[in-house]
Design a protein around this nucleic acid. Structure first.
Length: 595
RNA sequence: GGUCCGAUAGCUCAACUGGAUAGAGCAACAGCCUUCUAAGCUGUAGGUUCGGGGUUCGAGUCCCUGUCGGAUCACCA
């Protein structure tokens, strides 16, 4: 049963009967901890209907509900707030229905498909902390949408061409001496990244030398031989020069192999990959069509523009005067391509940092102007930058936190702290390694996902490896503890008869609180999807675990002589473990049987 | 300069979209292991929600204004 909707319709009926009015937008909120009750009706807005004081209104409503709504046991009114105490039978029935619902936390199929893009790295350097936030967010939002009944397609666009990769290619050609991942033992993406740094070093030295010889900064930046070489490679690549294309393929191949390893470690995956080298020429035809339709306009020099001044934005170039595409053109083409690849999707979610907010605003406006109905359902999942205690991450200053290094450190730290507690002596080597990985990654993912995606966040390495308090491992630990209880319950045969809680008359407060938390899960799922926010799930999972730990601490489960009550406690525990497992799964975090 | 975000306990974050005395974790202090895992639980202390106006029964939340951060405004991606 759904308590909220039952209660809402009772309240609606009460208003109807008492005040002879049709209202359905009254405010029903959770009761504050300090007052008795679970649901609170805010009475101020109702005073217009009742023409009585808020207190009086609350009292009348409360009395009516106790008499007519079967589920309200008693009430109290504090100021204008009507606090409702539901009878324990309702909570017991709620638990019963959660226990019996094997797909609790999976909302019904909507028959809609949606696409989500995330990761989308450049191929000239390895992934870093910013990519971790991006990937974890994208993966998690995809899972949240699945749980909301959507069919989800996860994609990324790999920025595999352009001047950035040519820089790495240029430096490798000059200084590489044939070095490969195999010959050096360096992971492919890191090796290519190494030459990207080499390029930058050599380039800067050349610019400096030219400026000292009297060139202006601008001129020097264009004239430096390193840059000319990279630009030349880009030109040759576009002309499909076979030597350059071979080199490009080889180095990108190294990077992909490296990325694959990192993605595997991170536990993210994709249903389809788009490559910029395939899509960068798309969109031009669309722009020309739009030009014919009069959606865009042409300037005297031949360049094509969109005028967004009526939308409060500027004019934006879509085709250069030489007829070539820009980034925006390509994104228009890619969006349309994706809708023809997946004709059933109703929209797209782009997981991209907030520095590109303007870009996506423009992109969606343009798609809309081109007449694509689905443009309304395109959403930029914009997230804030990750800062370090030392300030911003800057690749040039070497303050970037490398994804592979960070994950390795987290796992190492998890191992150190786990071993120190001495609880895993009976595990074999492989089990232990899996556990360290689960805990290390759980800590990292939870740390990055518990914060509202929109907000920029601070990554403090010391805090992220903490395993106590509002952390992933705290929740994993709660799960492991419950699993120990379930194992014990199984060994003494508690599950042998089917659970039926009808004969239980009342609950302990701690039990009631846990059921209350459990019952919020599906609402949280909807909220998380609506807000594109895994943080909603992270907060929920934490609240649930905390609530359960209080129960665990105050009530010794197996001391209970009444078999029905014992079964209820075991069933309650199992439901918590299941919901923790499921909600952590939505964050891409695994939970252990023991830790 | 225009536009858009943000500012909440010493630190990191919440606050059900306008509701009650603004909540957690970390750090500090004081307690709880012969019991189902102490990666836990209980308590103490910590606040002019950046400043100033306004809107109303009620504002951390909405409006105006100022201060301080950040992003963005390329025939770059």
């Amino acid at each position: 049963m759904n308590i909220d909707s039952v209660l809402r319709s009772s309240i609606q009926k009460a208003i109807q009967d008492l005040f002879n009015q049709q209202v359905d937008n009254f405010q029903l909120q959770p009761t504050n901890q300090e007052f008795e009750g679970s649901h609170t009706l805010v009475c101020f807005p109702l005073t217009k209907l009742s023409r009585k004081s808020p207190e009086e209104t609350g009292k009348i409503m409360g009395e009516y509900l106790v008499q007519h709504a079967g589920i309200v046991e008693r009430f109290n009114v504090v100021k204008g707030f009507l606090n409702l105490v539901l009878n324990d039978k309702v909570w017991i029935e709620t638990l019963q229905s959660i226990v019996e619902n094997s797909s609790y936390g999976q909302l019904p199929e909507r028959g809609e498909e949606i696409m989500i893009e995330y990761s989308s790295p450049n191929t000239n350097k390895p992934l870093h902390l910013g990519h971790l936030r991006n990937n974890f967010l994208g993966y998690s939002v995809a899972e949240i949408y699945k749980a909301n009944g959507y069919k989800v397609h996860k994609v990324q666009i790999i920025n595999d061409r352009g001047i950035h990769i040519c820089k790495s290619m240029a430096a490798w050609t000059l200084y590489g001496e044939g070095e490969t991942p195999e010959s050096s033992g360096i992971k492919g993406d890191h090796l290519v990244g190494k030459y990207y740094v080499e390029f930058d070093k050599a380039y800067k030295a050349q610019v400096k030398a030219l400026v000292e010889k009297g060139m202006t900064q601008d001129q020097a930046e264009k004239e430096a031989p390193m840059m000319k070489l990279a630009a030349d490679m880009l030109r040759k690549w576009e002309q499909k020069d076979s030597d350059i294309v071979e080199l490009w393929k080889m180095m990108n191949g190294w990077v992909y192999k490296g990325f694959d390893e990192t993605y595997k470690l991170m536990g993210v995956e994709f249903d389809k990959l788009y490559y910029e080298s395939d899509t960068y020429l798309l969109g031009k035809a669309e722009v020309l069509k739009g030009l014919e339709k009069g959606v865009f306009f042409k300037k005297d020099d031949g360049s094509v523009w969109v005028d967004l001044t009526v939308d409060g934005l500027d004019q934006k170039v879509l085709l250069r005067s030489d007829g070539t595409s820009v980034y925006m053109t390509q994104d228009i083409g890619t969006a349309i391509l994706r809708f023809s690849d997946f004709p059933k999707i109703v929209g797209q979610i782009y997981t991209v940092g907030n520095e590109q907010e303007y870009h996506f605003k423009v992109l969606f406006l343009i798609l809309n102007k081109l007449g694509y109905e689905w443009a309304r359902r395109c959403y930029h999942l914009s997230y804030g930058m990750v800062d370090l205690p030392t300030g911003k991450m800057k690749s040039r200053e070497g303050t970037v936190v490398d994804a592979d290094d960070l994950i390795a450190e987290m796992i190492e730290e998890a191992e150190k702290q786990t071993r120190a507690l001495g609880k895993i002596e009976d595990m074999n080597g492989e089990e232990a390694r899996d556990l360290f990985k689960m805990i290390g990654l759980g800590a990292l993912k939870f740390f990055l996902l518990k914060v509202d995606p929109k907000k920029r966040m601070l990554f403090d390495p010391n805090e992220s490896i903490q395993l106590q308090g509002f952390t992933g491992p705290f929740i994993q630990y709660t799960h492991a503890r419950i699993r120990a209880i379930i194992r014990k319950a199984e060994s003494i045969g508690v599950f042998q008869s089917k659970s039926n809680f009808n004969e239980i008359a009342s609950l302990e407060p701690a039990e009631r609180e846990v059921i209350k938390s459990l019952s919020m899960f599906e609402n949280k799922l909807r909220e998380a999807a609506r807000d594109y926010s895994p943080a909603v799930i992270a907060n929920f999972a934490y609240e649930l675990a905390k609530e359960y730990n209080q129960f665990y601490q105050t009530i010794p489960i197996f001391n209970e002589a009444d078999q029905n009550k014992l079964r209820l406690r075991i069933a309650l525990s199992k439901s918590v473990a299941d919901v923790i497992n499921r909600s952590m799964g939505l964050l891409g975090i695994h939970v252990p049987e023991k830790m």
